[in-house]
Design a protein around this nucleic acid. Sequence first.
DNA 1: TTGGAAACTTAACAGTGTTAAGTATATTTG
DNA 2: CAAATATACTTAACACTGTTAAGTTTCCAA
Lengths: 206, 206
Amino acid sequence: MGINERKEREKEVLQKSILTAAREVFLEKGFDQTSIRSIAQRIEYSPTTIYLYYKDKDAILYALHTEGFQLLGSKMEVLSMVENPLERIKAMGRVYIQFAMDHPDYYDLMFVQKSPMNKLDEDHEVWQEGMSTFEGLKFSVQQCMDQGYLPFTDVEAGSYMLWSTLHGMCNLYDRGRCKVLDEEKSEQIVDLGFAEFLKMLDAFGC
Amino acid sequence: MGINERKEREKEVLQKSILTAAREVFLEKGFDQTSIRSIAQRIEYSPTTIYLYYKDKDAILYALHTEGFQLLGSKMEVLSMVENPLERIKAMGRVYIQFAMDHPDYYDLMFVQKSPMNKLDEDHEVWQEGMSTFEGLKFSVQQCMDQGYLPFTDVEAGSYMLWSTLHGMCNLYDRGRCKVLDEEKSEQIVDLGFAEFLKMLDAFGC
DNA sequence: TTGGAAACTTAACAGTGTTAAGTATATTTG
DNA sequence: CAAATATACTTAACACTGTTAAGTTTCCAA
């Protein structure tokens, strides 16, 4: 009885085309303009059909957030080649900032917006995407601590602080808080801040 | 002709009562629930009356954001007593984090939400509140650089990076991204992260 | 051919920011 | 003093939002 299997496949196709439409709207028009109705219009279905494939809007945004983590993960992957753990952390930082600048909407969804987290809370799930990525940082930080590059007391607290520095720079920039600086400087501030961050990492070990 | 003056006073009273109502709703129900209608209901006026006193919702949120900066400023004031510039920066950090924890809604409005910044863009104004506060940090960072406590290349970039570290920790915490840690630890993570931050500041100078 | 399940839509609810037009009230003018 | 005007405020509406209950169409099996 292959009919049910075909139907299953068709359902999957529509589910994926909803996600594709959501991604297109999201990347073209941004988070605020990504409405159920705008997604529905793109696939030429009624808005309510979407609810037959996704529980609610949060579920769609969660799926997009996961895509973002896959994209970030693919860019982080190559850094396992870097032998020196401190250099690896520096390279991770560079990749992280570059990702935030290249894909500000994905970044916002992954690390700022509450919507994707709501989905986790509803389903009593753990934040696998975030945990895996953070694990990657923790691993390198632990190596740095073992080899005396970073004198943290607590791996997790230290990793969290380093992550926060980069996140803070990206988020303050994205949310227009670089207006504390003059226009010319505010455009370079994330790079300039990252330069100071690197200097700090080097000095920290001694 | 005191009649016009009386009317002016009455207009000011209503403008202030709108802001008071907005503040109450904002602090009681949070950012998302702070609607023009909910504010109007509280002062027993129609929603449209509010537009006679504030250009739009962004203008109200900007006014609330300014209140937040006054509150933060009052807590920062006393730190001018601290003689040692590095100790002063550490104390500023503590106050900053405490403020973010005590008043998460104000903090979000001041440093994360785009609404108050929209108002600035519309009116072609500078972000006076942010600039003043950042100036306070820059002053102490410059002193630290002069006295060899902090080897930054660029005062502004260094100050921005330090600010970002604290902002990042507060924002990631507020937006539920501490889910990368187990529940017990995520509750203390901002304090633990700040402890590592302090350690970094001390090590950085040597 | 009929019954029923599955897929999808229509219409509606309750909410949002915002604006045009209308209504009172108070003040100024002829 | 009465008419005209300016001020203050409200009503109703527009164009959206996420979401759901109820209705319709389509498809497959008995």
